[in-house]
Design a protein around this nucleic acid. Structure first.
Length: 584
RNA sequence: GGGACCGUAGUUCAGUUGGUUAGAACGCCGGCCUGUCAAGCCGGAGGUCGCGAGUUCGAGUCUCGUCGGUCCCGCCA
């Protein structure tokens, strides 16, 4: 092997005349009989190398057999390309290396797909051969962006006196929240560790230990069903601070987020970030993670539909609408598609009317008399050529369904500018939501979230009305971080557990160590966790979490490359004392 | 747990109303070619139509099941 003197992305005009060595993969071969052009690739770039039968000393027939993804080591001289041969699309396009000697370091087997084109194979095949897919420009760029993001986070937080501390991966299973991944214990047959859904309890305990600014870039595990932006194992930037309130958290985390966007992609985020309450977000955007890039809002139209002859809406708790400018162009077919779309969010249907010559037309317009039409047009700010979509139902159905429709229409109309970044804090979440199936309150965030001070006496009288000190950071419709000011009083923590239906015994058994820890001098504290993978998705413009993870799993949690999960030997099971139930 | 879409050559796809020998492009193999940069030209090999049942004289095509992938609802912070 000729040890490389330069990378494949490095050589420029000023290197002309130098003798160099390059190592890399064959990206493309262009064979012209007595002259052969090869683009040699490594992670830094591509350089054209030229084999000329007149100048090349070795066996020219070997060169003719080279094919994509062979690994080469070459020695040669940098030369200028002829004026007409310059490739302006390549950073190294003004030069080429005329090869004097070549060593074939590794010959590739026939490839399962074409590496230079990610679209050349379906995702399952690309995942099976992930090491090949990782050679593509796009994934190399994503993985390097991820690296830059780690570095930007670490340097910012370290400069702000945050201490990076590792917490256990093998921990106690706790009720509440997502399903745990379990790890059987050999030394304690019949007992299990759980993999952390997050280091929540450990980081709170670190606050009690006096590490008043903690962070960790850490793997978390949740055994639930997966989506385009969810994997069974994912990475969080986990952060906790002592002696703080919401304002301290916002200031510090905005600083970190702005630093990361500036360092990694050169983007300036606003200072400060805007804020919305949960109630405002739901009412105006129909989502607790609103995409703020486009002006399209939910409007309450119940007072108008109540005066109309359209009876289906009269018994509805809530009737809301969105108005799409120039939406009158929507055909019956498109409206049908949108109707099917909102039905997946439990809406029973999608009512609509178009504006034409100051009148409402089509859809349910015949149920609105002239003066009511004028009223609704004026009040909602409709113009000729617009369309209004209405949904009436329970508020908990209307708002999410219209909120989803809002995003879908923005997508169809191209309103979601991928180069625009609009962060927003969402605050004042309800403390609990009532679970109809289990007939009990569930924590909206998690059981350690503090209630607002003014709501503490409502904890028992009216739990549904209690607002929490939780907050989410949303960017372009993606929740990128969530956190809260925590409970630091053992009494209130016990009360929160009991409201969640945990008996004293259970609370003692599962979380007793935390409650006990709170009795030994607990500073007020709070924190946040960023979804690191989602953050990198936004920084790379990916719409798929698998594109920013080196070795991701499929939506059914399989790893197609190494074939996990897999069976294990009987001996391993015996040691763990595990016997399987027969599958029916 | 539920819904939608997809599975045909190494790969991406086409394949009519169920009908003779399942096509194209890229890749691969062989040949020609000294300035290409997705090189070009000529020729060739390559198929358990995901798997299993069923309907039918006849199934890539229709039905059911199953495996795998993607997206969504539920779930998940």
């Amino acid at each position: 092997m000729f040890k490389r003197t330069h990378t494949c992305g490095e050589l420029r005009k000023e290197h002309i005349g130098e003798s160099v060595s390059l190592n890399g993969w064959v990206n493309t071969v262009r064979l012209h009989g007595q002259v052969i052009f090869i683009d040699l690739r490594d992670r830094y770039g591509k350089t054209q190398i030229v084999f000329n039968s007149e100048d090349y000393d070795g066996d020219f027939d070997t060169i003719k057999k080279l094919s994509m993804e062979d690994v080469l080591s070459i020695k040669g001289k940098v030369q200028s390309r002829g004026e007409n041969a310059v490739n302006p699309d390549m950073p190294t396009g003004e030069i080429e290396v005329i090869v004097e000697a070549m060593e074939l370091l590794s010959e590739t087997a026939p490839l399962p797909f074409v590496i230079t084109n990610r679209d050349s194979a379906l995702e399952d095949l690309r995942l099976k051969y992930r090491y090949l897919e990782l050679r593509t420009d796009e994934l190399q760029h994503n993985i390097i962006t991820r690296h830059k993001t780690y570095q930007a986070v670490r340097s910012y937080l370290s400069d702000q006196d945050f201490v990076e501390i590792e917490t256990p991966i093998l921990m106690k299973s706790t009720p509440e929240g997502a399903r745990d991944f379990l790890v059987p214990s050999r030394l304690h047959n019949g007992k299990f560790y759980a993999l952390p859904q997050s280091p929540q309890i450990y980081k709170q305990i670190l606050m009690l230990s006096g590490f008043d600014r903690y962070f960790q870039i850490v793997k978390c595990f949740r055994d639930e069903d997966f989506r385009a932006d969810r994997q069974p194992e994912f990475t969080q930037i986990d952060i906790e601070m002592s002696f703080v309130d919401e304002e301290d958290i916002f200031t510090n985390m905005e600083g970190m987020t702005r630093h990361v966007f500036k360092e990694v992609i050169g983007e300036d985020l606003p200072d400060p970030f805007p804020r919305l309450t949960y109630a405002e977000a739901m009412s105006k955007y129909g989502s607790d993670k609103p995409d703020m890039r486009f002006e399209l809002f939910l409007q309450d139209v119940k007072e108008f539909t109540d005066k109309s002859d359209f009876n289906a809406f009269k018994s509805a708790e809530c009737v809301k609408a969105i108005i799409v400018s120039d939406g009158a162009k929507y055909s019956r077919k498109i409206i049908d598609e949108l109707t099917e779309f909102v039905k997946t969010y439990k809406a029973k249907g999608l009512a609509w009317m178009k504006t034409e010559n100051g009148q409402l037309t089509g859809g349910i317009s015949k149920f609105f008399d002239d003066s009511l039409q004028k009223e609704i047009i004026k009040s909602s700010g409709m113009n000729d050529g617009d369309i209004i979509f209405l949904i009436g139902d329970e508020r908990s159905i209307v708002e999410p369904a219209l909120g989803a429709l809002r995003v879908e229409i923005a997508r169809r109309e191209g309103l979601t500018d991928p180069n625009m970044y609009k962060p927003v804090w969402v605050t004042s979440f309800p403390m609990f939501k009532f679970d109809e199936k289990e007939k009990r309150f569930m924590a909206m965030h998690h059981p350690f979230t503090a209630p607002r001070v003014e709501d503490i006496d409502k904890l028992e009288s009216d739990p549904a009305a209690v607002l929490s000190r939780g907050y989410d950071l949303t960017l372009n419709g993606h929740e990128i971080a969530g956190g809260s000011i925590r409970i630091h009083s053992p009494d209130i923590q016990k009360k929160a557990f009991s409201l969640l239906g945990l008996s004293l015994d259970e609370a003692e058994e599962k979380f007793g160590f935390l409650v006990e820890a709170l009795t030994y001098g607990a500073p007020p504290h709070g924190g946040i966790a960023f979804g690191f993978d989602r953050l990198v998705m936004l920084l790379t413009g990916s719409n798929n979490i698998r594109d920013v993870i080196a070795f991701p799993k499929t939506t059914s949690a399989l790893s197609l490359m190494d074939g996990s999960p897999d069976t294990v030997s009987k001996e391993q099971l015996d040691e763990l004392g595990i016997l399987f139930k027969k599958k029916k």
